[in-house]
Amino acid sequence: MPRVSGWWCMSLMSAEGIGVQYGARHVLQHMNFSIDAGEVVTIVGPNGAGKSVFLRVLIGAEQPSEGRVNRRHGLAIGYVPQRLSIGQTMPMNVARFLALSGSQNASTNQTMLARVGIPDRAKEQMASLSGGEFQRVLLAHALLGAPQVLILDEPTQGLDQPAVAAFYRLIEEVRDEMGCAILMVSHDLNVVMRRSDRVICLNGHICCEGTPSDVSLAPEYQALFGVDNEGALALYHHEHDHTHDTVASP
């Protein structure tokens, strides 16, 4: 399978032989992974496949039971978590949250807020934002750290179809502008198939890996995603504007 790597372009971060064990249960086994500058990599897999755990290992939030993670020295990671429950207990407006990224310059932060499409929300409380706005603020927060790699854990969970499409379009634009690599976990198979350089199909271990078209033909992928596969394939091969209802989240 084609991989953009070699001596001239050292990967941003890599994982060697990662294993995570909770008690007797193996959540992840024998994970080898690397991501290069500017690459878009998507991880797909059923619930409980260890996708989020793997991301948490990569960002250093969790220690693997075996294996090791290498990060390029001084690597800036932007992370958009799956959930951020800012309860009502903590007052937090959007401007203050963006400043927590370390970027204290109010006009820079306001520009970023405009870039993600919500210029007039700086004074709002985080808890009062809609789901789509909230995800955009999280993205802006991550981008303000000028990341070389942007890691997103199911960033469109809970958004409706148009909001999902808009959010992915935004991520793609940002990638083109900032040139950062993107690693995301996604259930939106049709989007994954269209926009990723590489897809990793995960279910406790790497089932298969490669370009979207390679992966969608792999028997391991077809076994995991069953009937969804045809819809996803159809979408990938001919890029019609209409969507198939058969493409549902697994």
């Binding site: 948490r56 960002i59 250093g60 939030a61 990671i77 932007g78 992370y79 978590p81 951020l84 800012i86 903590m90 937090m92 949250f97 927590l100 990224s101 370390g102 750290g145 890691i151």
Partner: peptide, 18 residues
Amino acid sequence: WTSLLTVTLNADLAAARG
């Protein structure tokens, strides 16, 4: 202060920032 706030918001977000 800033680190404590970030950890309180979300431990993973804090971890990604070292």
